[in-house]
Nucleic acid binder design. Structure first.
Length: 741
DNA sequence: CGTAAATGTTTTTTT
DNA sequence: AACATTTACG
């Protein structure tokens, strides 16, 4: 039986390790941890100790001999979460934890595909494209099929393709059945996109999932992986999409040992294909499923929990959970009105300093959340001015900076010369006199001869129309890369390879010659990347086993890097991030800024009918707070270049008065001067008063009907006599009136 | 071919 | 307001 061999916890003489594992759990947690074979759904509310349940369950499976470490596949949302989970299991059981697969869906898929991609006609050194590259590829496909990129935005087309893939529709299936002009263009672009991706041996994020599903559907390979992973555990299950669901279903189809942990109230990734039905209908999809609800919260005060519940409980079709705590009521939630975003930022900065100075709160226990990244700037200005140390999570990402992408492109080219995206990026940065025209000539020659762009570049003199200077420049470029490629073959430390690459391609020299502050920053970023590589080299020296070369593994790690992975909790810094990035984290004090209609909830979400997802986002943000929670809104906000008067978020009106302390503009909450009642601020809680179920009503266009239900937010459901249809209407706005008897 | 200016576009959230 | 892409010019 495995032993706790490395931990500070003293091993009591005679204590049974399994008993010790269970001793620190509450009854519900224990029920989940000790569930035997078969599907298990853990509905884990915010702060209910779900990570603890997952880690202890894994440890329990291993310690009781039910599973061997190599049979465990545990899926987390970020790489950081994966590292932490592995670490905790290791704390409980020691080194055997090393051999488990604990990683994100995408990382696990990449690893499976590195082994089995040949089955699908890919070679195992395929490249992973990030969103920007994928969009560029879509754009090129649109140009190739002669679609006007003004009318058909690459972004929108890429999104449509992504949506299709997440639903496991391939290009052929998408194209069937005609559809709107947009859909036809998407279909055509989709087919070309898939062909080109395959030719380039490249995959986008969605492909990693889709192709893995294909592998698992292969009789032999599928059976191999099913046998390999006898135990599946998935965190944040509410954020899985259809492809991920199918992947799990296939893997679990024989043994059924699938544990999923999640909270339907925290499903906030619908926009990228996550399907909340996965969690809501788990018991239907896996009829043998056992369900455990974790409703005891170990994080927040009752006030925070009740306030958050008041908001999320307005959603329809959720699984009712009511979180409780023994922590006591604590401070009221503060709701504050400020004049504009600058005043808001000043208030936050001052309040942070007050918390630090007067209440002894540590800065790294304070976080500010906002809906969109653009909101961070004003706040950063003030924090810099007031010398409040802070870190921003997200925004312009390290790995999306031009110089970093260039460096990565060079490394990709060394790993996979056929990578035309990397080629296109590297070939003319720094400037080598191989501009758009020359590149187009290379590409079109590759296209007509069926060779890869690299093969074409190796014989530049054969490319029709390529100028003399360009031929020479391409020749020099190829020579440089070939030399580096040779060097890479001997598997030198990555940091050295990267440094050699940057200097031999003259990348560093060119930047240094610029002598601008900007170039200096870029050099620093590249220096940091070398540091990352060095760290990678050091870690890898310990780890060992892998089917990839170090270079390939590094590229993969970089490609699947997520923002939260870069989060550090040392350093005494306040943390700034979007509400989406906040999931899974917790802080003593939380500030949510920009609580205004149109911003939060975001106008686009409202347009697309995603109010409930916004409400869940609000729930997520609020429940990150242990004891202090402040929500602010500005009367005026300058966003995207124009200043406009704003209306307080409807979510603020949904907070029960007894839990809230309102400051500034108390009387005006919801009623700006002369603007009349604000639609967002319905009296809370309780249904809208104007209509009652069973009342007869008349609608200006649908005619006579009867109210069949009254929902929160002033929505009434009316069945109309004329056509028997049932419609949801906004009582305040719909041309609807009571029919007097 | 490269640079600079002009023009247009985009601003939800991300593995 | 900031950025990317396109266009015009040297």
């Amino acid at each position: 039986m495995p032993q706790t061999d490395s931990q500070s916890t003293p091993i009591e003489v005679g204590a049974d390790p399994v008993e010790r594992l269970l001793a620190e759990l509450n009854p519900e947690q224990r029920e989940a941890v000790t569930h035997g074979e078969g599907p298990l759904l853990v509905l884990a509310g915010a702060g209910s100790g779900k990570t603890r349940v997952l880690t202890h369950r894994i440890a329990w499976l291993l310690a009781t001999g039910r599973a061997g470490p190599e049979q465990v596949l545990a899926i987390t949302f970020t790489n950081k979460a994966a590292g932490e989970m592995r670490g905790r299991v290791e704390e409980l059981l020691g080194g055997v934890a090393r051999r488990m697969w604990v990683m994100t869906f995408h990382a696990a898929c990449a690893r499976i595909l590195r082994r089995d991609a040949q089955l699908l006609g890919y070679s195992s050194n395929f490249t992973i494209l990030d969103e920007a590259d994928a969009r560029r590829m879509v754009k090129r496909c649109l140009e190739a099929i002669g679609a006007d990129p003004k009318r058909f935005h690459p972004r929108a087309v890429r999104a449509a393709i992504s949506r299709a893939k997440n639903a496991l529709l391939d290009a052929a299936a998408y194209g069937d059945g005609g559809g709107s002009p947009f859909e036809q263009v998407v279909g055509e672009a989709f087919r070309l996109y898939e062909r080109r991706m395959r030719d380039a041996n490249a995959m986008d994020f969605d492909d990693l999932l889709v192709r893995t599903v294909e592998v698992l559907r292969d009789e032999q390979a599928g059976a191999r992986w099913r046998r390999r992973f006898g135990w599946l555990l998935v965190d944040e299950y509410q954020d899985t999409n259809h492809a991920q669901y199918e992947l799990l279903r296939l893997l679990a189809s024989e043994h059924g040992n699938l544990t999923v942990v999640g909270d339907d109230d925290q499903s906030v990734y619908g926009f990228r294909g996550a399907d909340i039905r996965n969690i809501l209908e788990f018991e239907r999809d896996f009829p043998a499923a056992h369900t455990v609800k974790l409703e005891r919260n170990y994080r927040s005060t009752q006030t925070v929990l009740s306030a958050a519940h008041a908001i999320v409980s307005r959603n329809q079709g959720r699984k009712e959970k009511r979180m409780w705590t023994e922590a006591g009521a604590g401070e009221p939630v503060r709701v504050i009105e400020l004049a504009d975003e600058h005043a808001e930022a000043r208030q936050i900065a001052a309040e942070i300093e007050r918390l630090v100075a007067d209440e002894g709160v540590s800065r790294d226990q304070i976080a500010v959340f906002y809906r969109v990244n653009a909101q961070s700037r004003v706040l950063e200005d003030i924090l810099v001015r007031d010398e409040v140390p802070y870190q921003v999570i997200g925004g312009t990402k390290f790995y999306e900076r031009a110089e970093i992408k260039d460096a990565i492109a060079y490394l990709s080219l060394l790993a996979n010369p056929a990578d035309e995206i990397a080629f296109g990026r590297a070939v003319n940065s720094p400037k080598r006199g191989i501009g758009a025209t020359s590149q187009a000539r290379l590409a079109s020659h590759a296209n007509t001869t069926g060779a890869t762009i690299w093969e074409v570049a190796e014989r530049p003199e054969k490319v029709p129309g390529l100028g003399k200077a360009a031929v020479k420049a391409v020749g020099r470029f190829v020579e440089t890369i070939a030399g580096l490629h040779e060097r890479a073959a001997s598997a030198p430390p990555l940091a050295d390879l990267l440094e050699a690459t940057l200097s031999e391609t003259s990348y560093l020299d060119t930047l240094e010659a610029e002598r601008t502050i900007e170039a200096q920053g870029r050099l620093e970023n590249l220096h940091e990347l070398v540091g990352v590589a060095r760290e990678f080299d050091a870690e890898r020296a310990i780890e060992g086993e892998s089917e990839l070369t170090p270079l390939e593994e590094f590229l993969q790690q970089v490609a699947l890097y997520s923002e939260q992975d870069g989060l550090h909790d040392e350093g005494g810094m306040v943390t700034l991030m979007t509400l989406h990035n906040a999931k899974g984290l917790e802080y003593d004090a939380v500030f949510v800024i920009g609580c205004e209609e149109g911003l939060f909830p975001h106008a686009r979400s409202l347009e697309e009918g995603n109010l409930e997802e916004e409400r869940r986002l609000c729930y997520v943000g609020m429940t990150r707070a242990r004891r202090l929670l402040q929500l602010t809104y500005a009367r005026r906000r300058m966003l995207y270049g124009v200043g406009e008067a704003s209306i307080p978020s409807r979510f603020l009106g949904e907070l029960p008065d007894e839990l809230v302390e309102r400051e500034g503009g108390l009387a005006t909450l919801g009623w700006g001067p002369g603007t009349g009642p604000s639609p967002g601020i319905a009296p809370a809680p309780g249904p809208h008063p104007s209509y009652a179920t069973g009342e007869d009503v008349v609608h200006a266009s649908f005619g006579e009907g009867v109210v069949t239900a009254v929902e929160p937010d002033g929505i009434v459901v009316v069945r109309f006599a004329a056509d028997g249809s049932e419609r949801k209407l906004m009582a305040d706005f719909a041309p609807l009136r009571r029919r007097s008897a």
